[in-house]
Design a protein around this nucleic acid. Structure first.
Lengths: 347, 347
DNA sequence: TTGTAAGCGTTATCAA
DNA sequence: TTGATAACGCTTACAA
């Protein structure tokens, strides 16, 4: 490969001058600049970023540690990170912890993940990244999961920490659930059941609170019998819907806290010959790809994944730029996607 | 950050010796090794990979250029690449061309993609990657899409080139279609229709050939009226199925060349009150995530995406190791996933 | 077995 | 406006 030294020799100038025209630094006459540029062009010179990085102690690359690329949320978040990074001239060094395949259902085991993460973190730091984004695959508390004496910006997304000083980008679960519930209320529903995720997660609690607040704000009665706790999986949506339908106070609508369980709910209705949405309205959460393929297509809250990526990257850039006012915790809005699983309440 | 120099000073040895214990090179007495290791531990020393890379002219990182991370095939391929890379101690520098969002439906425009790719390629080369994997998002001919005088291993996956000297990892489309067809034949079907993708793609032709050969091998009659050309999208599956069902020689089974069109076929049946699979069997191709959520769940050929990733990375490693016998074109097998959209042919 | 020192391709200081 | 040169943190002859 041709080096600055080669350009300098051929153009009859010093390496310093070549470096200056390359970076627009110093001052160099139009004439020499032109002749240097010409040589650069001819030799098809490409600067060596490694050497540059060593010297300036900046790599213009951001490390991205993702718990699992194959998780439904990861690709779109990475896409968002990428969009912003590209505009800023930054590259991405990707580390995939592969927690699903590696740990199977244990991927929820914080301790193992912690080990994986700190390992990944150390290695990526050695590559001298200028900043780091951690992308979760599960609503997990990642407090102190990675630690370093070298202070580079670290931003968490799709996961949260319990320390106020950490930067995190997430979506507003409370508001999302609130709006989903409101949507059903406005459609005339009064008996709105909830199929929640496991209550050990912040997610579940926040979403439940959103639901609760919508019920209260509309002066409806809160009926605990309508609240069921699932485990985020299809089967639990199915089973709990069956329970709800068998009970005395049967709901006219169900808010499922993710699309998997919503799909399960649809399945349960089908088994019982109930029509969705005529007999029962169902609203999901996440807007997974498959939600357009259920029958009927699912009405659901879309997560602002792409935007979470761009905002995470933006935070990193802001911190890097020394912007003290960078907000620590960003919460982005979900969007209701109206498809065909929810309708007006039956008279 | 602490440097080798610091370790050397504190341990009262030369930097050369420290470097030797770090890399297991040279020969150093157990005693000095121990004392050096101790200092390294105490100081929590982490080597600077950038400096090392500059010196040894190897970065132990592989560039991954992906046409679009959000494409359904990308995440799993990346996961495979990652698995292999991790075992070899390599990192991944990810470039996402974002062709879908950037170009919209024009993402099929080879010329624009070519520009994007060569740009991405140049930048990633400047970062001194040791090798490159190009991940397509669309069955595209990428011949000479990226060129370089610096010869590093380049492996293409989920796309193909027309040059025999290029390395490419793909799945065996011919065999996949052959086996899918055979599956239907074994279930007693004799009138098997095909909903193909656009015939401007190699994919479509190979898959069609696989179908054709299965028909021939089983001495069935080939009926051109049963071959319909769609455009890979849901709607075309729907429309063409309607045509097939309206025709005189009605098929008992449909092989759709992707899951989108297969889902469309199911939709068309539903509209007409036909039962799947009792009245019509449908087999898809790709095994998209949504295929478990259609009603009935789709029987389909699963693409060996993860394995394509690992094999692509393996090729890179092999070439890097100077293994002359590395096979240029790998074709991996698809797997039939039996779900509920195909059954025995009606008597 | 250990140390000295040159060099990887840049940038940046300082002098000319 | 330009050039000589040290330095970034590491590896690696080669010498001791």
């Amino acid at each position: 490969m041709t080096r600055i030294k080669d350009i300098a020799r051929i153009a009859n100038v010093s390496t310093a001058t070549v470096s200056n025209v390359l970076n627009g630094t110093g001052s160099v006459s139009d004439k020499t600049r032109a002749s240097i540029l010409k040589v650069i062009e001819e030799m098809n010179y490409q600067p060596n970023h490694i050497a540059k990085s060593l010297k300036i102690k900046k790599t213009k690359t951001i490390g991205v540690i993702v718990e699992d690329v194959t998780s439904f949320n990861s690709a779109e978040i990475i896409d968002g990170i990428n969009e912003y990074a590209e505009n800023e001239g930054f590259s991405l060094l990707l580390t995939n912890m592969r927690v699903f395949k590696r740990l199977g259902q244990e991927y929820k085991d914080d301790e193992v993940v912690r080990q994986l993460a700190s390992q990944a973190f150390r290695e990526i730091l050695n590559k001298q990244v200028d900043g780091l984004i951690y992308v979760g695959a599960h609503p997990r508390d990642v407090t102190r999961m990675i630690e370093s004496h070298k202070r580079i910006p670290i931003v968490y997304t799709y996961c949260h920490t319990s320390r106020d000083e950490d930067y995190a980008v997430n979506y507003d679960e409370h508001l999302g659930a609130y709006e989903a519930t409101n949507y059903l209320i406005e459609a005339g529903h009064r008996q709105i059941a909830v199929i929640s995720g496991l209550f050990n997660s912040n997610s579940s609690r926040e979403r439940f609170n959103g639901y609760y607040q919508a019920i209260m704000d509309n002066r409806l009665v809160f009926n605990p019998a309508l609240i069921k706790t699932g485990d985020w999986e299809f089967e639990s949506g199915c089973r709990l819907t069956a329970e709800l339908l068998a009970a005395d106070s049967r709901p006219t609508a169900i808010l499922a806290m993710n699309d998997n369980m919503a799909a399960g709910a649809i399945g349960a209705c089908k088994e019982r010959g109930l029509r969705v949405p005529e007999d029962l309205s169902i609203v999901g959460f996440d807007d997974r790809e498959f939600s357009s393929y259920t029958a009927p297509q699912l009405t659901t809250m879309r997560l602002p994944l792409h935007e979470m990526g761009t905002e995470a990257m933006k935070s990193v850039m802001d911190i890097l730029a020394g912007n003290e006012s960078t907000v620590k915790s960003k919460k982005l809005k979900c969007t209701l996607i109206e498809r065909h699983s929810a309708a007006q309440a039956p008279k």
